[in-house]
Design a protein around this nucleic acid. Structure first.
Lengths: 114, 114
DNA sequence: CAAGCCAACTAGGTTAACTATGTTGGCAAC
DNA sequence: GTTGCCAACATAGTTAACCTAGTTGGCTTG
């Protein structure tokens, strides 16, 4: 489910799917749930789900087959793996930075008020 | 300009921008044209331009600054011992995440109390 | 002159609607 | 039984609209 953490929904969903793939919860060769199903289970609109899947597709984690579904890639290319992990870490760091800045802002507000 | 080659427009535009960055036509630290300008010069809609820029952003080639523009990243050089740095970053991110979650939890407690 | 407001720009996120295209299963017609 | 059609569902791409939010520059007001 998409949480209201300020992190965009399409990134949250992409993270979740990435995690399910990495953990083997969705095995290589297996299809992801359909976009409609994902939209329902995540409580999001079709658009954001499509954006999320598009991200994974761009990262090479999954391949889409028109009319059939989106399947987890069988081969785990190490070079690409590094690349995917890099983008993952990069977004994670960006997320942490943002959250920290929010905390710092509210903290300074509290200080100034008192 | 977007051609009718079957390759999606948002990929064509991303390719073009990537090329301009790689060639130095848009130097590091410099901003890309605004999305509105890009849409006009490429003869595309705002939506596809935003998708293209989103791709580059995801790749880490550029960073967006709300209200100002999208800027080419200053640092391009990839490190050699990528793997080691990756594990180091992974543990650092995990640590930061844990600490931040603790902070956020106590912060929300304070909010609820007041 | 200085402060503050405001309009015009910027990126970013979300949603909805439409089109194109491929796959699959069932059903009717022959 | 086989063929062919067709409805339902799938991904994929595009566009438009609306909203949030940050930045900047100019103008007005005190």
């Amino acid at each position: 489910m998409v949480k209201k953490t300020g992190r965009p929904g399409y990134l949250q969903i992409a993270d979740e799917l990435r995690e399910q793939i990495r953990s083997g919860s969705i095995a290589p060769g297996e299809p992801l749930p359909s976009t409609a199903q994902l939209a329902e289970t995540f409580g999001a609109s079709l658009s954001v789900v499509k954006m999320s899947v598009g991200l994974l597709r761009n990262e090479g984690l999954v391949v889409g087959q028109q009319g059939k579904g989106v399947f987890v890639r069988e081969d785990a290319p190490p070079a690409d793996d590094v690349r995917a992990e890099l983008t993952e870490l990069r977004t994670a760091v960006a997320d942490l930075t943002r959250r920290l800045e929010q905390l710092e802002a509210s903290a300074s507000q509290r200080t100034a008020k008192s």
